[in-house]
Simulated assay, not measured.
Amino acid sequence: MTACADATAETADPTPDARGATVDEPAEVTVTHAQGETTVPVNPEVVLTFDLATLDTLDVLGIGVDGVPKSNLPGRLAAYDTDDHLDIGTLFEPDYEAVNAARPDLIIVAGRSSSALPELDKIAPTIDLSNDWADFRTSIEDNSRILGQIFDVEAEVDRLIADLDAGITRTREITADAGEALIVLTAGGEVTAYGPGSRFGFLHDELGVTPAIEDVEEATHGEAISFELIAETDPDWLVVVDRDAATGEAGAAAEQVLDNELVATTTAWSENQVHYVDPVDWYIINGGLGTLQRVVDEVAGAFDR
């Protein structure tokens, strides 16, 4: 299910305290997310997130969090690797003892950590802000609006989304006549391809770049391809994600993997139209308003010739 920004804010009627005076109950908002509906407090005090895309959006909005999976933090989010932030496990596996001890008001999961929601929800209200690869832009905007309602910053979210939409429109004007592109990911010396509807399909689906291959398998990890297929496809552009660089694993850099006689026959190679994307934004974070804006700006800069 794609997360939805349709949420209902609720404030309980004033109730008497021990002296007979009235006090307002904390406001709550009910949101529809990837795994159902959950009622959470507005402006929760203790927030834990296992989702880097959410962390990216909250960072752009200037909203702090109390706990993150420190072992998986990329350099761009190193500011959260401090003693002021709790270490709550990994992107895939929560440290339930640490989470419980934090006494959170809100827990956020997505993608890699989404299967942990049932257990985490026993500790505190937990929402799943997973992205939908088939409707990537909409899911990010919807998830951002949910955060806007929870943290009472809806106007700021709307402004950021308007900026993003304007950037996408400008980028589509640049890519309209740029030719065909093939998205490839290198890892351990192997190459996989991605197309429309995949985890990197935003390049085609929203930014208007014509795919060199229409029927690439729409899977998270792409479709394994050979250098011969790249040569036969002869894309005008190669858009390259270096997974080893993103994860810090040892291995040949993408530039080395693709530097061979077959790839050298392509138009992309001969025209110097091989673009190596920011692997952290595209592979590790892969979502969030700040990241998506950077991706849009990066594509516009690469294709503006």
Results as ranks from 00 to 15, higher is better:
G64S: 15
V68P: 09
I127R: 05
G167I: 09
A102Y: 01
D158I: 11
A116D: 09
Y80V: 04
A166C: 08
N100T: 15
K122T: 15
L58Q: 06
L77E: 03
V157S: 12
G67W: 10
I63V: 14
A98P: 00
D81P: 05
A124L: 07
L120M: 10
W133V: 10
H85Y: 06
F151K: 05
D152S: 06
K70H: 10
N72C: 02
V153I: 11
D59V: 02
L117F: 00
D66H: 09
D135N: 14
I150E: 01
V153D: 09
A101L: 10
G75C: 03
A116S: 14
V153Y: 00
I146F: 08
L61Q: 07
I108V: 15
L147K: 08
F151W: 03
D81G: 07
V68I: 13
K122Q: 15
F92Q: 09
K70Q: 15
S115W: 12
A78T: 09
S115Q: 05
S113R: 09
G111M: 06
R159Y: 00
K122S: 13
L117C: 04
P94H: 11
A101Q: 14
E141K: 09
G64A: 14
T82A: 14
I168E: 02
D158P: 10
P94W: 03
G89A: 08
D105G: 05
D105L: 02
D142Y: 00
I161P: 09
L117I: 12
L147N: 13
H85P: 13
I140T: 13
G111S: 11
V60C: 06
I108Q: 08
P69M: 07
E119P: 01
S113P: 13
A166W: 02
S113E: 07
I140H: 05
S71L: 07
R159N: 15
G64K: 07
E119N: 10
L77D: 04
F92C: 00
I107T: 06
